[in-house]
Nucleic acid binder design. Sequence first.
DNA 1: GCCAACGTTGGC
DNA 2: GCCAACGTTGGC
Length: 152
Amino acid sequence: MNHWLLKSEPAVFSIDDLEKQKTTLWDGVRNYQARNFLKAMQVGDLAFFYHSSTEPPGIVGLCRVLETGLVDPSQFDPNSPYFDPRSSAENPRWWTVRVGFVEKFKCPLTLDLLRKNFSPDELILLRRGNRLSVMPVAAEVAERITAMRASQ
DNA sequence: GCCAACGTTGGC
DNA sequence: GCCAACGTTGGC
């Protein structure tokens, strides 16, 4: 099983929204590196849910990959901000997964706390200028994150 | 609201 | 294929 980190602005979609909805299609990713990580996900993988552009930013919960290899429907919707006129049904450009709510952390693991416990080498999130919204988390790092959560 | 960092676009 | 211009991300 692999671990991932998914970024979302809570004003757009939060861990509370996921808890209410139970599952969601992780659509709207329009970056090739992030898309490739989405493609590499497998059913059963766990993903840390990260809130960005909020105070404080941080990991706020956990979700699980339920379905993989899904075509992102928003690329075909002219009314969607994620519409991509270069995509076609025969040759879709953007792929995604469905994730399900697992848990919301009692205390968020803030970006500040993550910086104190991990190096930028260990956690892509912490790398200078990082803007990836979907990224892998090494097993050993995921274990330490989970341990931090437990000790809060 | 600022701005550094980065990805994408498009002229050449 | 280069690279300047531009738009976006996201922490602060």
